Simulated scan of single mutants.
Amino acid sequence: MTRFGYTLMTEQSGPKQLVGYAVDAEKVGFDFEVSSDHYFPWLDEQGHAPYAWSLLGAVAHATSRVDLMTYVTCPTVRYHPAVVAQKAATVGVLSDGRFTLGLGAGENLNEHVVGERWPAVGERHDMLEEAVEIISALLDGERLTFDGVHFRTDSAKLWDLPADPVELAVAVSGSQSISRFAPLVDHLVATEPKAELIQGWDEARAEAAGDRTPAPSRKIGQIPISWDPDVEVATRRAHEQFRWFAGGWHVNADLPTTEGFDAASQFVRPDDVAQTIPCGPDLDAVVEAVSAYWEAGFTDIALVQVGDAAQQRFLDEAAGPLLDKLRAAAPSS
C-alpha cells in the first residue's frame, strides 16, 4: 500500500509552527512525516532554518503514530557521522522506534558554514560511504574504533539505543550511487519519479543478497505542491518560495548562498514554476502529479506544501480530502 507523508520544511517555517503542523498532520491522517535538515533556507524569502534535531525531538513527543524521518541529513561536513548516529539513536528512543535516518551527500548551501572546503561529488560519495559504515556500526551497538580516509572514531559507543535498530535510507540519483549504497542501507530516497532508479535499486539489492531474499525496502519520494483556493495566489507563492527548485540537484548541490540561488533563478517565471508544481485548489491535479511516483514504483511519497502562510489552511481544509483522493487512486499493494 502506498504511504503518504507530510514534509516539515524547516526552510519556510519556525520551530514552534512546525511542531504544531506535525501534530495536525498526524491528526488529519498522514502516514509519516519527514524533516529537512538545513542551516540555510534556499532563498531569503523563505526566512527560516531551525535545527532539525531539536525539532524532531519535540515532534517525537508531540505525536504518537506517524513515522518520522530526516529528508535528508548530510553526515560528512557539518556533522561527524558518530554524532549523527547518536542523534538518530536518541530520536529513535524518543519516538518509540518510529524514526528512519535519511542520509545524503549534502549541499554546499548548508555545509560551507563550518569553513571547510566543498568536495567534488565523487569525494562526497566516498565520504558518505564511510559515514554509513560508522553510523551502521554504532546503531548496531558496537564500540567502534575506525580509521578511514575521511573519518576517525576512537572507542565510540552509543549508550541509549531504541529497542529496534534505526533503519537507514540514502538519497540516490543514478546507477553509480545506487550500486554503491543499495547493499549498505535499508531504503531508497529520490526526488524524481524515475522508474529506472527503483529497478536499479531492487536489482542491486538482489545481487548483494545472493541466494537470500533481500529485505523489504521502501522507496521514498517527495513532491512540492502549492495548494490555495486562489490559483494566482498559489502560483505567486510557489514562484517566490520555490523558484530555486528549477535548477535541478546538479546545480542545487553546489551553490553556496541564498544570493546564489536568487541569481540562478532570476529568469524563472511564475508560469515556469507552475508547469512543474501543481498550483491552486484542484486536488485532482495534485493526484495526477503524485501518481508519477507510484507509477515509477515508489512506496512512500511525502508532500511539501509550499509556503508557511498557506500551511495551516492546507492542513485544515485540503489535506484530508486530498489524502482520500490519493489513497483511492494509488495501488493498494
Rank of each mutant, 00 (worst) to 15 (best):
G122D: 08
D67Q: 15
Y71I: 15
N110Y: 08
V77K: 04
V114I: 15
D140Q: 13
V93C: 10
L139I: 13
V91L: 12
D96W: 01
F146A: 01
Y79V: 09
H80V: 12
G97K: 05
I134W: 08
S136N: 13
S95G: 06
H38G: 05
A131R: 00
L43V: 03
L56E: 02
G29T: 07
L43N: 00
F32M: 11
A88L: 04
K27W: 02
H61L: 10
M127W: 01
T63G: 06
R98V: 09
V77F: 10
Y39L: 15
A49K: 00
R98N: 12
R78H: 14
G102H: 14
V121L: 14
V84Q: 12
Y51E: 13
H150W: 15
V77H: 07
P41V: 04
N108E: 10
S136C: 01
R124C: 08
L138I: 03
S155P: 00
A85F: 10
T73Y: 09
V77R: 06
V132E: 07
S64W: 05
L55T: 02
M69K: 09
D140F: 06
H125S: 00
L68W: 04
D126K: 03
A60I: 02
V72K: 05
R143Q: 09
D31V: 06
A85S: 13
F30V: 04
L138C: 07
Y71N: 13
D154L: 08
V93L: 06
V19Y: 02
S35V: 06
D37Y: 12
Y71A: 15
W118Q: 08
T73E: 11
V23R: 13
A25S: 10
V132K: 04
A22D: 03
E33R: 05
G106V: 10
V77S: 08
G29Y: 02
H48P: 01
K87I: 06
K87G: 07
E111V: 08
A131D: 03
M127Q: 13
A120W: 04
A120V: 07
A22S: 02
S36W: 12
V72D: 06
F151C: 05
A60K: 05
T76H: 01
D44H: 01
G47W: 00
C74Q: 14
G122F: 04
T76L: 04
A52H: 05
H38A: 04
P50F: 03
